[in-house]
């Protein structure tokens, strides 16, 4: 019964969302509401906020996200390999073959990491 195993996950999604929404509704019913203009300002160290918060931000976040995607996908590739590794390697099975295969794969990825590192993309404050 492979698919039915995932049933409780659906139940917990529904239940925890219901709990969160229910507490928000209960709070909505019993809490005071007294908004006025100054209270609704966003907090900016006590001064009147200037400009929008929805503006440009540091491009370095995108680079981190890009490198992350590469390594995350790579990790997903490694999980099935990790499950069968012990079973497939050793003298009775394929010997060094699984280890060498993964080493080649990782070496290609690590060249990418080394490139990003060398280019200074892993430095938070870039040299100008």
């Amino acid at each position: 019964m492979p698919a039915i195993q995932y049933g409780p996950i659906g139940v917990i999604v529904v239940f925890s969302a219901a709990f969160a929404v229910a507490t928000l509704i209960i709070a909505y019913l019993i809490r005071p509401a007294d908004p006025y203009s100054e209270k609704l300002l966003t907090y900016e160290c006590g001064i009147v906020p200037f400009g929008e918060a929805w503006s440009k931000f540091f491009v370095r976040y995108y680079i981190i996200a890009l490198i992350f995607v590469i390594f995350d996908v790579e990790a997903i590739f490694m999980y099935p390999w990790a499950v069968v590794y012990k079973q497939l390697s050793g003298p009775t099975a394929l010997g060094l073959y699984p280890a060498v295969e993964m080493a080649v794969f990782l070496a290609i990825l690590l060249v990418g990491l080394a490139y990003a590192w060398g280019k200074g993309d892993l430095k938070w404050i870039a040299e100008t």
């Binding site: 209960i26 709070a27 809490r31 005071p32 509401a33 007294d34 908004p35 209270k39 609704l40 966003t42």
Partner: peptide, 11 residues
């Protein structure tokens, strides 16, 4: 926290 006012900023 349950009976505290919920403030959503204007923008």
């Amino acid at each position: 926290l349950l009976i505290k006012e919920d403030i959503v900023p204007r923008g």
